[in-house]
Simulated assay, not measured.
Amino acid sequence: MVAGTNATATFIPAFLASWLQLLAPDECFDEFFVKFNILHVPCLKILISKCLGYAIIVGSFIVKVPQIIKILKAKSGEGISLISVTLELFAISAAWAYGAGHKFPFSAYGEAIFLAIQTGTIAFLVCAFSDQLTKGLAYISAYVGIMGFLLSPAAPMGLLAALQAGNVVTVSVSKLIQASANYKNKSTGQLSVITVYMLLFGSTARIFTSIQETGDTMVVLTYVAAAICNSIVAGQFIYYWNSPKTDSNVSKKIQ
Rank of each mutant, 00 (worst) to 15 (best):
residue 185 N to E: 15
residue 125 L to H: 07
residue 162 A to M: 12
residue 23 L to K: 08
residue 163 L to G: 01
residue 188 T to H: 03
residue 33 F to L: 10
residue 253 K to D: 04
residue 198 M to F: 14
residue 74 A to G: 02
residue 32 F to A: 03
residue 125 L to N: 11
residue 174 S to V: 00
residue 208 F to A: 00
residue 228 I to Q: 12
residue 67 Q to W: 09
residue 34 V to C: 06
residue 172 S to R: 02
residue 224 V to P: 04
residue 185 N to G: 12
residue 235 G to P: 07
residue 88 E to Q: 12
residue 245 K to F: 11
residue 142 A to N: 11
residue 195 T to P: 00
residue 104 F to V: 07
residue 92 I to K: 07
residue 192 S to I: 05
residue 33 F to Y: 14
residue 227 A to F: 08
residue 59 G to T: 02
residue 35 K to R: 14
residue 106 F to A: 12
residue 249 N to I: 06
residue 44 L to A: 01
residue 144 V to F: 15
residue 243 S to V: 00
residue 232 I to P: 03
residue 191 L to H: 06
residue 68 I to G: 09
residue 98 Y to S: 13
residue 75 K to H: 09
residue 31 E to R: 15
residue 197 Y to V: 11
residue 236 Q to D: 06
residue 60 S to Y: 03
residue 66 P to A: 11
residue 92 I to G: 04
residue 161 A to V: 01
residue 6 N to I: 05
residue 35 K to C: 03
residue 37 N to S: 12
residue 243 S to F: 13
residue 217 T to N: 09
residue 162 A to Y: 12
residue 64 K to C: 06
residue 99 G to Q: 07
residue 153 P to C: 00
residue 74 A to D: 06
residue 90 F to I: 10
residue 67 Q to P: 05
residue 72 L to R: 14
residue 95 A to K: 04
residue 50 K to I: 03
residue 34 V to D: 08
residue 174 S to G: 05
residue 59 G to Y: 08
residue 91 A to T: 06
residue 112 A to D: 09
residue 91 A to K: 02
residue 204 T to D: 08
residue 238 I to E: 05
residue 2 V to C: 12
residue 69 I to L: 13
residue 126 V to H: 02
residue 113 I to M: 09
residue 49 S to W: 06
residue 213 E to W: 04
residue 131 D to K: 15
residue 110 G to H: 06
residue 9 A to L: 14
residue 149 F to M: 10
residue 132 Q to R: 15
residue 93 S to L: 14
residue 28 C to N: 11
residue 180 S to Y: 15
residue 62 I to Q: 04
residue 228 I to D: 05
residue 178 Q to I: 01
residue 182 N to E: 06
residue 57 I to L: 15
residue 115 L to A: 13
residue 134 T to H: 14
residue 198 M to C: 12
residue 181 A to E: 05
residue 150 L to C: 13
residue 254 I to C: 02
residue 51 C to Y: 09
residue 48 I to F: 13
residue 71 I to L: 11
residue 139 Y to I: 03
residue 29 F to Q: 08
residue 201 F to I: 13
residue 167 N to H: 01
residue 89 L to E: 05
residue 93 S to P: 06
residue 42 P to W: 04
residue 31 E to K: 15
residue 106 F to G: 05
residue 45 K to L: 09
residue 76 S to E: 07
residue 155 A to E: 06
residue 138 A to R: 13
residue 81 S to W: 05
residue 179 A to E: 05
